[in-house]
Simulated assay, not measured.
Amino acid sequence: MGARALSLDTVVTAVDRFIPAALRKTDRAPLAPALDAEVRHVDTWSAGRLAYYVDTRAAGRPVVLLHGVDAAASSKEMAPLFDALRGERPVYALDLPGFGLSERADRPYDREIFRAAVRRFLTDVVRADGGADVVALSLSSEFAAAVACEEMSLVHSLVLLSPTGLGREAPGASAVLRAVSRVPHVAEALYRVLVTPPSIRWFLRKSFVGDPDPGLVEYAVATSKEPGAHRAPLAFIAGELFTEDAFQRLYTRLPVSTLILYDHDPHARFDRLDDLVKQNARVEAARVAPTRGLPHFDRLDATLEAVRKFWAQDPW
């Protein structure tokens, strides 16, 4: 979006003009569920009430799906996997703090609140003997990896889709966007500019080989309009959710079997993936091409084939 070429004063001035319209409250219907599944809730101390989707009609080791973190994230990002796996495994999909149907209260959002939410969910809701098979997308890979490193009993295996933290440069937004994200009211107005329907469609198009999934676009627009929707995404833009040197602190220490699926991603790099596979014998990688960060949308069959083959190596 050319943010690196803009001065902070320019961005603040432009966004400030948008504040009255951006912050105007309007009556709207409650946000609809992202998935066609039962919705339940769990109360947590640090993140408030969290929503999750569940289908436990099938037997077996539970699968836990964790969506990514972006301006308009939700469990809709995991819909293809949820729909494909329900009926053959118990499946859970968690709306992370500040996203989807989960509470979006005014509280500090940092990586610890997301790690704690995943830990609490696995401990008190899923409660799988021997741990769950966790599938995480993008930045949520860092949260899942941290929980696996801290409490191995909660995680039986990990599948990481286009994980962050494997590039040689620190991830995150430009310095201008990080600075603006810390200015009250201006930050919220900036968020409203970033989540207009054309903007959301433009950003999502970068993550698809072809046209973005219409349902994903539609739900992203809807969830971004919820009160408080700006809070967690602004923490993401400010860089509060990433783990410094996730390669060494998390991925090389992973104590559970881990599959990384990747190809090209406009938001993440995999420069150190080969090094990781060499350093940690529990980690393997498979390329799902052609994809651009959402392999389970662009190439669902290939993604499922790789995941099922990985799980079959050690089903219990």
Rank of each mutant, 00 (worst) to 15 (best):
P80T: 01
R107Q: 05
V135K: 00
P108E: 08
S74I: 10
L154H: 02
S138P: 02
F114R: 00
A132K: 06
R107E: 00
S141M: 02
G68F: 06
V69W: 01
S138T: 02
D83C: 02
F143K: 02
G131F: 10
A146D: 06
S153W: 14
R89K: 14
E88M: 12
L96Y: 01
A84P: 14
Y92H: 10
S138L: 02
S74Q: 05
R86S: 15
R119Y: 11
F99I: 13
P90Q: 03
F114Y: 15
E88K: 12
S157N: 08
A132M: 02
A116K: 12
A93S: 14
V135R: 01
S140T: 07
P80Y: 03
G130E: 07
P80Q: 07
D129L: 04
R120E: 09
A71Q: 05
V135P: 03
D83F: 03
M152H: 13
D83I: 06
P80R: 05
L158Q: 10
A79C: 00
V63M: 01
A105M: 07
R89V: 15
S74A: 06
L85T: 14
P108M: 09
G131Y: 11
G98L: 09
G98F: 08
V63H: 03
L158H: 08
F114S: 02
L94H: 09
R104D: 11
F99V: 14
S74T: 08
Y92K: 05
A84C: 13
Y92V: 05
G100W: 06
R111Y: 15
S157M: 01
L154C: 04
V135M: 03
A93T: 13
M152F: 00
F143I: 03
R107W: 05
A93D: 12
D133Y: 09
Y92R: 04
I113C: 05
R115W: 06
T123D: 14
F121L: 03
R107N: 04
E150R: 15
R111H: 15
D83Y: 04
L122P: 15
A79R: 12
D70M: 12
P97D: 04
V135N: 01
R120P: 02
M152K: 15
V69L: 07
F99A: 11
K76N: 05
S157G: 03
K76G: 05
V126F: 08
